[in-house]
């Protein structure tokens, strides 16, 4: 059967209804709809978000402790970036420890997170996504000289950290694939064992030519233009980006001196933000 419905509410067991209600109203910022509006044997409080979703607090004598295996158990609030900043201020004003993101290394650009526990230890993730997540990010590296044609074997993928791209030599020639994930601006890695690029932030995978494989509807990795000078040096312009619908051999630059990128039929994108590679990640 298809549920063909929507999420309605999260029921949360709490041991002190007044205390927990205050937490969800004052810290998380929910609205109070009322008490005992639901068929439960115990006192309840029904709280509202701006969408149809609700939180139902049910007072119980004891909340089962999270099992040792419960590290993955959590619920995530989605806030706007402005709401996120206000929530962080509220947390600090109410005396909470500065909220941290325990999985910062997994986050994409523009993804804001912090973890918080309610008075009974229920773990919540508070998240917001800024516009940076979908902006076109330049590395500021300009044109990068990668090396001579012969340094790159057919079938090779070379990560050029300085310019945030992968230099691919396939049967058709050279491609420079921007390493920024087209989903939410995570930084992809080449997993040669699996013959794909992988984004650790949300799990997106792209084949060797940068075409997305999966059901999140991502666009292929973007192209930086490649050219080869008369000496046979492979150059990549990291200041220009082209979007594409898939791979075609015409996107590759033939492996011979003087060959240049042909952008016919591709859409050039405007760089909206420079994100130079930090020394730590070079």
């Amino acid at each position: 059967m298809a549920l063909n419905g929507a999420f309605s509410h999260l029921t949360i067991e709490v041991t002190d209804l007044d205390k927990s209600e205050a937490f969800y109203l004052d810290v998380i910022g929910l609205d109070l709809l009322g008490r005992d509006l639901v068929a439960e044997d115990r006192p309840t409080s029904l709280l509202a978000m701006n969408t149809r979703q609700r939180v139902l607090l049910v007072e119980v004598p004891e909340v089962p402790p999270y099992p040792a295996s419960g590290g993955s158990i959590h619920h995530a609030w989605l806030l706007t970036v402005k709401q996120f900043a206000k929530a962080r201020d509220r947390l600090e004003a109410l005396g909470y420890e500065p909220a941290i993101d325990p999985r910062q290394s997994f986050r994409a650009v523009g993804e804001f997170n912090m973890d918080i526990h309610d008075p009974d230890g229920h773990r919540f993730q508070i998240q917001a996504f800024g516009d940076e997540g979908t902006e076109i990010l330049g590395s500021g590296a300009g044109t990068v000289a990668c090396g001579k044609i012969g340094e790159f074997a057919p079938g090779s993928v070379t990560r050029i950290a300085k310019g945030r791209f992968f230099l691919v030599r396939n049967a058709d020639g050279f491609l420079a694939l921007s390493a920024w994930c087209t989903h939410k601006n995570g930084i992809t890695t080449w997993q040669k064992e699996s013959w794909h690029y992988y984004c650790p932030f949300h799990g997106a995978k792209f084949d060797a030519n940068g075409v997305y494989k999966g059901d999140m509807g991502c666009q292929p990795l973007r192209l930086n233009p490649v050219s080869i000078d008369d000496d046979g040096t492979v150059l990549v312009d990291t200041g220009r980006f082209f979007a594409r619908e898939g791979y075609s051999p015409s996107q590759a630059v033939p492996a011979r001196p003087g060959a240049v990128f042909q952008c016919g039929g591709l859409r050039e994108l405007t760089v909206s933000l420079e994100r130079p590679v930090s020394k730590a990640r070079e």
Binding site: F7, M49, Q53, H75, W77, L78, L79, T80, Q83
Partner: peptide
């Protein structure tokens, strides 16, 4: 107006 739009997911 609440200060939280929605729950987005649960683990």
């Amino acid at each position: 107006m609440a200060q939280a739009e929605t729950l987005s997911h649960s683990g």
